[in-house]
Write a protein that binds this DNA or RNA. Structure first.
Lengths: 204, 204
DNA sequence: GTCTATATAAAGATAGAC
DNA sequence: GTCTATCTTTATATAGAC
């Protein structure tokens, strides 16, 4: 019998467990605010064990983890957008719901700090991934809507970036302080933007 | 003769020079990514000298500096809004121009990392300042516009927060990558939002 | 695959000279 | 007001035992 592939909630292999936990830490706090002990100890191992799986140490782990994080964001975003073929509003709402339920993706922190701490090749790789898997994917929705005539003329890349920044910034509002969920807030903001670019259901 | 107050580009007193430089570092990179040497050495002093001016060390310096930073953001924002009594669009554009020309204010990083590293009283103080001097000030513009009938019904706090997050996120787009300035981008986004909440110049 | 032990470097912080 | 020197702690990283 093969060494039983881990079922649903079973223990994953150590490498995956490390990546999972490191992702939740690195992606929300950035490279400088997380230590190798922060990653290792909650997993029941010492920080030295991390070097067996990731000989490149902290930087290798960070790059791997953030690449994973961006790809996961990207595929979740893509899946959300595809899940609502009906209307642009539905697609954007699904996308926002996905983003809002993920750990925040803090592009300011990435640009101002994390990427500057990496070797330039890795930094550029991560930048390109963010651009291609996240921003470009969102941009496409606006571009296609313009072509289809469901929204008026606008800068699709700017709308995508603005919407993304807006939605991500909701992560910083303490939900206890407002009487709305983040998803409700995101939906209201989306409605304002869509109205602002002359969205009309069903095109032309 | 009094010890000559520093004229325009003259050297400021050490304490102010430290606060100025620390502000530019702490506000863009956060508490963990800045060391006391990063602050002291470019000012031509050693990190030990900082303890003469700020006996509380790094945390005291960070709190003082960020309080200053938030107040500066707040008064610049207020001045910008007051400078354009004519129209809501003009006021929001002036506000955005101010924000975009300041170092980024990364609320996600603050909430997820910096504030958690401070003693709770200081953390709450900074949170309250952000809320009262930045978000509430912007919110007022929307509230008053609703009352005046220049925009339609909407959640003014949400609009303020959304606009702020949107504008701040422009700091993370590499200007070399687009053919627009950050101010132009901010203005386009403002126009979309205003249209989305039924802005009509001159009210009612 | 993970540990203990250790090396090395860097950080925050304090004491005391100047 | 600022320095040098030192202390303490913490971080990354490596070596070698198990």
């Amino acid at each position: 019998m093969t060494p039983r592939k881990p079922s649903l909630k079973d223990e994953l292999d150590p490498r995956s467990r490390i990546l999972d936990h490191a992702e939740s830490l690195f992606s929300t706090k950035g490279i400088d605010a997380v230590t190798l002990k922060d990653i290792a100890l909650p997993l029941g191992m010492t920080h030295a064990a991390l070097y067996y799986h990731f000989p490149g140490g902290k930087e290798e782990l960070f790059v791997l983890v953030m690449e994973r994080n961006i790809r996961r964001h990207g595929s979740g975003l893509d899946a959300a957008l595809r899940s609502q073929p009906g209307s642009l509003r539905g697609r954007l709402r699904a996308a926002a719901a996905w983003l809002v339920n993920q750990p925040p993706m803090d592009l300011i922190r990435m640009a101002e700090n994390d990427l500057k701490a990496l070797d330039p090749a890795s930094a550029r790789k991560l930048s390109v991934l963010i651009y291609e898997l996240i921003l470009q994917r969102l941009t496409r929705e606006f571009s296609e809507a313009i072509e289809a005539g469901t929204i008026g003329p606008c800068d699709p890349g700017l709308m995508a970036g603005g919407l993304f920044g807006m939605v991500e910034s909701l992560h910083s509002v303490p939900v206890a302080m407002v009487r709305k969920t983040r998803i409700e807030m995101a939906n209201e903001l989306i409605d304002v933007i869509l109205k602002g670019i002359d969205y009309r259901e069903g095109g032309q």
